[in-house]
């Protein structure tokens, strides 16, 4: 089950990285070849692009913080198990990160293509339920 949760988080990370790479490719190619209408001049695009790059840059810091917290934690031996509280924080960090990435990646198509808000709401509610379920399993295994 733990493999599924790690898989869930890593897929979101992979999608964010590939979309970021695609955005970077377009920006670099257009700026190197002095495009007449570069994409960076469009506010909708530049907002999403800068948000994704900030989120990805923050990933290392937040992960490092959680690793430091895990190292300092003293484990409590329960009945047939070891109780650790840090996985709860790690889960919260990854949950918010995945949610932010999804919102950023989906925001651009939603604005550009004019997708109705109801569709977005359904997608986001599905995502929230998936994250909550995945984190609950993660906490149960970690706690």
């Amino acid at each position: 089950m733990a493999d599924n949760i790690i898989d869930f988080f890593s897929r979101f990370g992979l999608v964010a990285l590939i979309v970021f790479g695609l955005f970077s490719f377009i920006v670099i190619v257009q700026s190197d070849n002095s495009a007449v209408q570069p994409l960076t001049e469009d506010s909708r695009f530049s907002d999403s692009f800068s948000n994704i790059s900030e989120e990805l840059a923050d990933l290392e810091d937040t992960s490092q913080d959680q690793w430091d917290a895990l190292k300092q934690e003293k484990s409590i031996v329960g009945f047939g198990s070891i109780v650790l509280f840090t996985p709860v924080n790690i889960g919260k960090t990854f949950g918010s990160l995945v949610f932010a990435m999804f919102e950023l990646i989906i925001k651009l198509p939603v604005i550009i293509l004019g997708i109705p808000l109801t569709v977005t709401s359904v997608l986001l509610s599905w995502l929230i339920i998936s994250i909550v379920s995945a984190l609950w399993i993660f906490w149960k295994l970690g706690g």
């Binding site: 999608v15 979309v19 695609l22 994409l39 469009d42 990646i105 651009l108 198509p109 550009i112 293509l113």
Partner: peptide, 14 residues
């Protein structure tokens, strides 16, 4: 028009 293409394609790539 490029923004339309990009938005549409990102959904499929994602």
């Amino acid at each position: 028009l490029f923004m339309y293409i990009l938005g549409f394609c990102i959904v499929f790539i994602g």
